[in-house]
Design a protein around this nucleic acid. Structure first.
Lengths: 247, 247
DNA sequence: CGTATTATTGAATACCATCAACAGACGTGG
DNA sequence: CCACGTCTGTTGATGGTATTCAATAATACG
């Protein structure tokens, strides 16, 4: 199954696509730019060929030159400790921008890898920074994106520090459901792009715990799950269990 | 004891202080600005009277108007869940900037409270944003600050997700030690501005666990602790235990 | 079609939280 | 200055939640 891009009306943008034709223009960096400004941003963006599942977009420690907006597919970002264990820091869907944790150093702070076939827009940071000088809206949008990421990471700290396994999974499901809806996909039925293992890693749980909670949620009639296919049967209950704040 | 400002040569800046006279100029927002640019930044900064321990600098949900650079003292930031429980998202020392998680909304995303007598520089965001248009260095520094915060939050996610209680405390001690050294204070002897309770909350541990780890570390000759006074006896061992990455 | 990876389920263990009691620090007011 | 109450910190005993270990089942992949 060709994943997300086929689930709704989004056109999988071809290599030549421009920002103004992209269905994600209302969510992505160009948000609130006027037409001429969008063209300027468009000029500095490089559109590469698709990444296959498992391909790295960049690796922790590599020279930092660009940030990347996801056009289709899904990306996970992760950090590795000295001990070699990895911590997934985020799953990223179309319109989201990855790589911003590397801005203040000359190397990438995280690694980014495709979870499925994925296309991205590469945005050279030097040129983006120049452009941000001229376009106040763009500068604000950049700051907003980073601010939002800080807020989401802090919500994640809350989750990892205070929530039970059930609450973590519920929070995750409600959160990703909302993000799919924002992008025009079904909020109640979707295919998770990540494995149970990656989900557990991200949520601070063992794989087995993730599995157990999924089966328990099914027994309780909260969800139906068949591998990575998930349907939310009782979103309200999940939302309550998640403790409200999910986005 | 009048806390941090008396521990080394830093002059506790009076109300009239300007950025160019501030001992923190090499760590704070003005970093890498030239003299004239610093004056421009200086013009938009409001310097208020000190906050007493327990005073709120701002509260989650209040209108977002400014970010704040800490001049002396210490601040904790925290989020509260719908259930009313709080998660501390950071402890902040002089030269650090708080409030940036609220940039992309019109309300503050976290609350900020003084842990001891604290002075701050208020920086109205609208004017900072305007100034960022003219001063490329300032814009970069702002982006750098946010980028760094994202990285630190992600390291925190790693800690909360993967580390044991011992590793968490060791990581915290090594981290704050380095931050004190950066600011010209002793790296091996300091007074923690937060309670055991707050430390546990931040690190995802129960108060009792924090207490036990502190006593165990003392028995092992790693530290000496007397309430909030802490000496690092064997920093190398602590560093190893922390798993390297601490900043 | 066979192998490797991923997912599920069960049993035993470990780590930390919780509960409870006490000790010490702090601050207030007598 | 000391008595008092409150808050914070320490220590011990117990229990729960999630991990770990182990085995099997299902899925993906060449």
């Amino acid at each position: 199954m060709p994943a997300s891009t086929s689930q709704c009306g989004h056109k999988p943008s071809g290599l030549q696509t421009h920002c103004k034709d992209c269905s994600l223009v209302g969510l992505c960096l160009p948000l609130s730019l006027n037409v001429e400004d969008i063209d300027q941003l468009d000029d500095i963006i490089k559109r590469g060929r698709p990444l296959k599942k498992g391909d790295h977009l960049f690796r922790q420690g590599e020279p930092f030159q660009s940030v990347y907006a996801i056009r289709s597919g899904a990306i996970k970002t992760y950090v590795v400790t000295d001990a070699g264990e990895e911590q997934i820091t985020g799953f990223h869907l179309p319109s989201e921008v990855v790589g911003m944790a590397g801005i203040d150093s000359d190397t990438h702070a995280v690694s980014a890898v495709a979870l499925e076939t994925t296309t991205v827009c590469e945005i050279p940071y030097e040129r983006l920074d120049d452009l941000a000088m001229e376009l106040p809206q763009l500068r604000r949008q950049l700051m907003n994106l980073m601010s939002r990421e800080i807020r989401e990471d802090q919500q994640m700290m809350l989750l990892l520090s205070k929530k039970t396994a059930d609450e973590r999974i519920a929070t995750f499901l409600v959160n990703i459901s909302g993000r799919y809806r924002l992008r025009g996909f079904s909020a109640h039925h979707f295919r998770l792009p990540m494995s149970r293992n990656e989900l557990g890693n991200y949520l601070g749980l063992a794989v087995e715990t993730v599995s157990r909670v999924f089966t328990r949620f099914q027994e309780q009639g909260l969800i139906e799950a068949n591998g990575k296919e998930v349907s939310l049967i009782n979103p309200n209950e999940l939302y309550a269990m998640a403790g409200g704040r999910c986005e």
